[in-house]
Computed example of a mutant assay.
Amino acid sequence: MDLNTVTEVVHPLSRTQLPVWTAGDAWLAGGTWLFSEPQVHLTRLIDLTDLNWPALTIGDTHLTIAATCTVAQLDVLACSPDWMAAPLINQCCRAFLASFKIWKTATVGGNICMSLPAGPMISLTSALDGVCTIWAARGGERTIPVIDFVTGDHANVLAPGDLLRQIDIPIAALKRRSAFRQISLTPVGRSAAVLIGTVAHDGAFTLTVTAATIRPVQMSFAAIPRADELRDTILRRIADGFYHADVHGRPLWRKHMTLRLAEEIRDELQARP
Score class of each variant (00 low, 15 high):
257 M>G: 03
4 N>C: 07
210 T>K: 02
63 L>A: 04
213 T>F: 09
143 T>K: 11
115 S>Q: 09
236 R>V: 03
203 G>K: 03
115 S>P: 04
220 S>F: 01
72 A>G: 02
78 A>S: 13
121 M>S: 02
253 W>N: 09
213 T>G: 12
177 R>F: 02
62 H>A: 12
144 I>A: 00
52 N>F: 12
204 A>Y: 04
250 R>S: 10
257 M>W: 14
35 F>Y: 14
212 A>H: 06
9 V>N: 08
90 N>E: 03
22 T>L: 05
234 I>E: 05
159 A>S: 07
202 D>A: 00
31 G>A: 13
87 P>Q: 04
128 L>F: 02
58 I>L: 15
120 P>M: 00
12 P>H: 06
60 D>P: 04
156 N>P: 07
211 A>N: 05
255 K>F: 07
78 A>E: 04
169 I>G: 00
268 E>T: 10
263 E>V: 10
260 R>M: 11
78 A>G: 04
212 A>V: 07
74 L>E: 04
243 Y>I: 05
157 V>E: 06
73 Q>P: 01
15 R>D: 15
261 L>E: 08
220 S>N: 14
50 D>H: 14
232 D>C: 08
104 K>H: 15
7 T>M: 08
103 W>N: 12
97 L>H: 10
167 I>R: 01
74 L>R: 07
195 L>T: 08
161 G>V: 05
98 A>P: 07
236 R>F: 12
200 A>T: 12
60 D>N: 13
89 I>A: 03
89 I>C: 02
181 R>V: 07
173 A>L: 03
256 H>L: 15
7 T>P: 01
238 I>K: 14
160 P>G: 00
210 T>Q: 10
23 A>G: 00
138 R>E: 10
206 T>K: 11
1 M>A: 15
93 C>G: 07
5 T>K: 15
